[in-house]
Design a protein around this nucleic acid. Structure first.
Length: 187
DNA sequence: GCCACTCGTGTAT
DNA sequence: ATACACGAGTGGC
């Protein structure tokens, strides 16, 4: 079976307008995943935040990112979809995302969604793809601000010299995710 | 390995 | 509005 063909899983991003954020309903819950404890948060329009780490920390970050909202700890159906996507190698699943970002960030994140499972890209490549070949460093920053972790596959972006590059949750996790994908890519 | 270059963003003027 | 410092980077040396 040829390499690329599992790749339609292109989630749709809808943009959250910060001014309309006040009073928005956000439901979140903590789940166990392949990569440790994860917090998954959603609005009625899609996943708005996904993080790894310690519960207290993640809740703190959630509130910090949505100061106008009042997140409620409560399961939602869409969380299950997100959860299966975290470890789904053959994901034909797609999931709506409802996230905040600048024009530039949205462009970068859209580009990340095109990288197939098990594949890698580089910050340079992304910069070229969005038509700003010199904005490499800015791309790095934008990639790092992706609010939904591996739903937007920022772990698949490494340096053009093949070095691992940075990762919000540490290089070990990035490495684990990449290894997981390369092992499961041809099953 | 060190350094200049580059550019979007947040923060301060 | 304007200035400045800071990155999950890159290429030249």
């Amino acid at each position: 079976m040829p390499k690329h063909e599992t790749n339609k899983a292109h989630h749709q991003i809808s943009r959250m307008i910060p001014e309309k954020e006040t009073g928005i309903a956000i439901r979140y819950n903590i789940y166990e995943s392949l990569f440790g404890e994860t917090l998954i948060a959603s609005t009625d329009k899609g996943i708005c935040f996904l993080s790894f780490g310690e519960k207290k920390m993640m809740e703190e970050e959630l509130k910090q990112r949505f100061p106008g909202a009042d997140p409620v700890e409560e399961k939602a159906e869409i969380h299950s979809t997100a959860l299966s996507l975290l470890s789904g190698s053959d994901s034909n699943l797609s999931i709506p995302l409802h996230i905040k970002g600048t024009d530039f960030q949205l462009k970068v994140w859209d580009e990340l969604l095109l990288i197939p499972f098990g594949h890698k890209s580089s910050y340079k490549q992304i910069a070229e793809n969005i038509g700003k070949p010199k904005a490499v460093r800015a791309v790095g920053s934008a990639v790092g601000k992706n609010p939904v972790s591996c739903l937007i596959p920022c772990h698949r972006v490494i340096r053009s010299d093949n070095a691992l590059g940075g990762y919000h949750w540490g290089p070990e996790l990035k490495e684990r995710m990449l290894q997981y994908e390369s092992k499961n890519n041809f099953l």
